[in-house]
Design a protein around this nucleic acid. Structure first.
Lengths: 217, 217, 217, 217
DNA sequence: CATGAATGAGGGTTCATTCAT
DNA sequence: GATGAATGAACCCTCATTCAT
């Protein structure tokens, strides 16, 4: 099914090999995400990553040229995945047709879910010595998020000056990001309460500015 | 051999030695604060701290049993110093006698000022996304702050269940700490607006719970 | 399974396979000669050799049991190739029938020519200062050359004790090999003069021992 | 005796410490010379050097920033020592007043002695991948030697054109350097014979050009 | 037979900690 | 009490070699 033509007979092994390679890379990224989450970037050893991935230390280097490259690839993967989560979050929100509570529900939940599902994410993007490569990788997320939130604010508070809008968006995102570690670190049973508080905090901050859909919206 | 008379003459040398010791410790803590700020905890070497302090690596271990203990002591000193900054803040706040806005002004301003004045220090011990290795060192700060804020909430909302009170305090602190880097990093001209937003955020979150002093308080 | 008839039909495939095998070995030796020349023995990786040969690392070990064996085989091939270059040199030299100058011309020229034509190879296996790791690989070359030169000396100075003969041969070869890098590295225009000096040096050293063909030779 | 003045009391420990440091460095260089001689540069491990020096691997790096730096320092030391040997060799030779045999004795013996006494020398200066730093370190020796030999030739064959003189000097040095490994590697009992042959080779090469001191010299 | 991912021992190097001076 | 050389475990990474496919 993969390839039946004459010259196609060469592709199945190539494809299988490539597929296995990508599998291994995914394995390694999963493992590194787990270990980064447990130990932080600096204290994570390549041996620990290899062990977590169930391979030998040397094999790591068949796929990634060094520890930093693993972090970079993991960051890229996170960015891609997070973009999907953002997409869903903001697309479904129909900014102007919902009460603020509902809006927050739709925006917050998927992104929180992503963070809960990927505890390694924070370990990577909060290094004290973040190299330029990671900052660059993270920037698209940040700016995408910022743009979306600004959009949302603009939709609900069209008369707000642009500078105010930007400021409000930045602060809202900061509050959100500050709460995420709490939510992630908190146990299963605490989580609902923490998410509720997160939404309360956002609500409290945003309500004066954008509580209601614009009249006639 | 130093103390040969009854008692009075023995203490001065002892006190002097102790005084010199405390001086050394202060030296080391200053140095470690500087180096931690520059390089982050993991990448900071004890030799670098010693060099910054102008002493030998061996001398470090006459005062601190290991690197972690230095971080711990630095955190403790931070609590002490910050307490001085807080004292006025919390004491003068007379929790029960002010409208929420005034209360927030008195609580937020001195702590923000301290953070602005000690940007390197804050970069280490109050990041919204603290790495595992520093959690222990930072705990005293956190718990001191937490205690104060809980106190304040208890004073203004005496009927709030303890669990709710703790949760509210944690979230408020998290919001506060999330905003501090923004305030510190932000330029001089942005700062007032950011501080205002910080207070708005805290107000928005806390108002439903503790907006008014208890009747007849 | 391939050879099912009496005998005649079995050999061609075997021979073909063997031929292909020898092709592969030649490929590998060419590659290793190139890489050894570029990087030196120690810094040459088996992967680099395989890549240069256009095969996989694993295939290397189907023909050579390890890296050292490759060097060994390369040395052996050098002997074989050089023997072809020498054959005429030594054979045509009719050791006993020529004046020393003529003899040196016939012996030196082809070997120098070979070295000029294979500079990378020589750089590895005939350096005047051979590192310990290469001594073993180079021994066959040395001993073949040594044998020839001893033969020549024996023919012209039959009464020279064997120990002296060996010593003289070793020194003559050493002088020769010392000069080769000079000749190879030296530009086209310098080369004739250097070759002349090489011969003068050999002449100066050998003349007292073997200048004249033995009387009645 | 080292320092008795008021402020001098600080120097003795400093000097003692420095002395110990230089001792350690000499220890390490001795050890590395031995191991380089045994194993060649590439196969020499820092652990082996440390073991040979009787210290721990980590201590190496208190004195040398890495393996290459050890080689560099060793090379520098060799150059210095060799310069002394050269000095003696050429100064005592009184170029114009000796028969060639006597001249060669005085020039060859000290330099050969140095090479015999420092077997690590060759391992260092014959690396296939010699870094620029080592080439630079070796250049002074080479050019000093070349200059001296040219001087000698000029003294004894004043009418030889400069180009010829340079060529002759280069070839003589090459012959000399080619023989040194033989002499060094050869056992105690072989050595005298090898040295004799070395001188015979040089004599044979040089005699036609500079055999006699210039008439009336 | 070919492949190339997998292996794992071992290399150079760093650094928290100790200890002789 | 101060010093800083010494330690050695542990790190990241390489590469000769093997083996499942």
């Amino acid at each position: 099914m993969t390839a039946r033509t004459a010259e196609g007979q060469a592709t199945p092994p190539a494809r299988r090999r490539q597929a296995r390679g990508e599998l291994r890379m995914a394995q390694i990224l999963d493992a590194s995400a787990a270990v980064f989450a447990r130990a932080g970037y600096e204290k994570t050893t390549t041996i620990a990553i290899a062990a977590e991935a169930g391979i030998s230390p040397g094999s790591l280097y068949q796929f990634f040229s060094n520890k930093e490259a693993i972090a970079q690839a993991l960051a890229d993967r996170f960015v891609t995945q997070l973009r999907a989560a953002h997409q869903e979050a903001f697309d479904s929100a129909r900014f102007t047709a919902l009460p603020l509570d509902g809006l927050l529900d739709r925006m917050v939940d998927p992104i929180v879910a992503f963070n809960v599902a990927n505890p390694g994410f924070k370990a990577l993007f909060a290094r004290p010595d973040m190299p330029a490569g990671l900052t660059d990788a993270a920037r698209p997320i940040q700016s995408a998020m910022l743009g979306r939130v600004e959009e949302m604010i603009a939709a609900r508070a069209p008369r707000l000056p642009a500078a105010e809008r930007l400021l409000t968006a930045r602060v809202a995102i900061q509050i959100f990001q500050a709460m995420v570690p709490l939510v992630v670190t908190g146990g299963e049973e605490e989580r609902p309460a923490l998410i509720r508080e997160l939404k309360r905090a956002l609500h409290g901050y945003l309500a004066p500015t954008i509580s209601a859909p614009p009249a006639g919206g």
